[in-house]
Each structure stands twice: as structure tokens, then as C-alpha cells.
């Protein structure tokens, strides 16, 4: 695929991924077939900052995990009062990384 297009994609969506994944994503996209471009471009990624805000406000009820699609862990957090409050605090620091990992998984499903 056109390197310029890929760079545009990276510029617009770089914040949704871990920094060490970005180079790998770029290489994969450059070698990707043009027919997949529309699919890649229309993917919706979750914003780590939004998830952080949700985690700060609703982390005790597991809403951040539900939003990410980690329903099992969300239920776990909900029924244990946010893991006695400890898990809530851990997730304040973990949720941005977890969001980026989820975004990577989503992109990988299209790239496969």
C-alpha cells in the first residue's frame, strides 16, 4: 500500500496504540493489499483518555471494563465492589494500556 496513506493513518491513529506496536503496524500496513484499506480505515478505536475518565468515575462498578468488552472482568469488579477498591486503583493505571491492547487486537483481526 501507498506509504503516504499509511503515514496518514499512523498520524491520525497513533495515539490508540502502544508506541512499540506502531512500527510493526506501519510495516504490516505497507505490505497490506489495497482492497483491505477501506476496512482498515473505517475501524473504530476506543480512546484511552475516555476510558481513563470512565475508570476514574465508574471504575468501582466495573463500567470501564464493560466498555472495553472485558465483560467477565467487569462482572468481577461489579460484584466485589471494584475488587475491594484495590482493583479499581490498579485499573486507573492499567486501563489506558489495556485499551491500546484491545485496539491492537481489533486491528490485527482485520490485518489477518
Amino acid at each position: 500500500m501507498d506509504a503516504q496513506k499509511v503515514d496518514m493513518f499512523i498520524m491520525a491513529n497513533g495515539k490508540f496504540f502502544e508506541s512499540h506496536h506502531v512500527m510493526q503496524i506501519r510495516e504490516r500496513l505497507v505490505s497490506l493489499d489495497d482492497s483491505k484499506w477501506v476496512e482498515v480505515q473505517t475501524l473504530q478505536f476506543k480512546d484511552p483518555t475516555t476510558l481513563l475518565i470512565v475508570s476514574l468515575l465508574g471504575g468501582g462498578l466495573g463500567i470501564d471494563r464493560f466498555m472495553l468488552g472485558d465483560t467477565g472482568m467487569g462482572v468481577g469488579k461489579l460484584i466485589t465492589c471494584g475488587g475491594f477498591g484495590i482493583w479499581t486503583i490498579i485499573d486507573w493505571f492499567m486501563i489506558m494500556g489495556a485499551t491500546r491492547e484491545k485496539n491492537m487486537e481489533k486491528l490485527q483481526r482485520v490485518l489477518m
Binding site: 468501582g60 462498578l61 461489579l78 460484584i79 466485589t80 465492589c81 471494584g82 475491594f84 477498591g85
Partner: peptide, 18 residues
């Protein structure tokens, strides 16, 4: 009592009492 929500707001959370 370990529930943060209850300590902070005095309102029990969905799993208080479990």
C-alpha cells in the same frame, strides 16, 4: 467497611452486603 463508594458518598454500592 472497605467499600469506597459507601465511605465517600454514604450510599451503598450494588454489591454492598455481599
Amino acid at each position: 467497611e472497605v467499600c469506597f463508594i459507601k465511605q465517600a458518598t454514604d450510599i451503598p454500592c450494588p454489591s454492598c452486603g455481599s
